[in-house]
Design a protein around this nucleic acid. Structure first.
Lengths: 142, 142
DNA sequence: TATTGTTATACTCTATAACTATA
DNA sequence: TATAGTTATAGAGTATAACAATA
């Protein structure tokens, strides 16, 4: 088999194990991937309207409503009035949400360290550079 | 930022663009990821019972029933009687299903070549080796 | 008794369309 | 008129539980 095909296979395998690992970690915290991605955006982008969330997540406004309803029921986010536009809703992390996200971020950093520990800086650089190339090519194939 | 964290980020990005690329390619052929994975198993593993499919796909037998109902409606698979066990159903690709899968496999090989063209054999080897290590570590974190 | 695949039911994520309140 | 977010409805994928036919 050609080297490129073997590498290609491995990338698909990576996507699977990465997804499984993510689902396990999130599941232990009562989260799903779509809900966690929404929280992640708030964690890194700060308060946002639902419209802005729907654009960030590339999904419909209706979808954001559903995700927020679930997250609000779990006391992870807060909906509040927008100060200047009474049509809009401002979404923020609750104190509990902030705590969960801080812990999630720490777990993420831990995961990165564990994944690549013992790999030389040179190999890591080659790995990342190759990944950059492949990602860009796949994005272009739109 | 540490090199490991940057590489980790890139892997998550890869999973996203790989998933998007896959969805686009399958969507053009009227397929979804779960349905395509079922077809892929039949393509490479040959005729199977629904029970065997549910084990291969790591999902419930009920789930297989639903996927097969949709694939059968699109004339991509055939359900037939098991020769020796009258409880069981044997599933095979239809002629149309075989044609679609042959084309899909060709497209897969093309994708692999395009993704890594121009990358040196040495870099590709380092890339694949690093990927192997990371995948194995993530699998161990069960 | 155990197994195969089904019907019944439910939950999550996703989408479109119609609607309300506001801009 | 246009925009923000909702209700109504639908479809895909997933799961558990109860059931019928067969082993």
């Amino acid at each position: 088999m050609a080297g490129s095909e073997r590498a290609y296979e491995r990338m698909f395998e990576l996507a699977v194990v990465l997804g499984d690992l993510l689902d396990r970690g999130l599941g232990e915290r009562g989260l799903t991937q779509p809900r966690a991605e929404l929280l992640w955006r708030l964690h890194h982008g700060g308060a946002m309207t639902q419209r802005e969330l729907s654009e960030a997540l590339r999904c419909t406004p209706r979808n954001v409503t559903g995700l927020l309803d679930a997250l609000q029921a779990d006391d992870l986010v807060v909906r509040s009035q927008h100060p200047s536009d009474r049509r809009a809703t401002l979404v923020t992390l609750s104190p509990k949400g902030r705590a969960v996200l801080a812990e999630l971020e720490a777990s993420y950093t831990r995961g990165a360290d564990e994944a690549f520990s013992g790999i030389s800086a040179r190999d890591l650089a080659t790995f990342t550079r190759t990944l950059d190339i492949v990602i860009e090519r796949m994005r272009d194939e739109g």
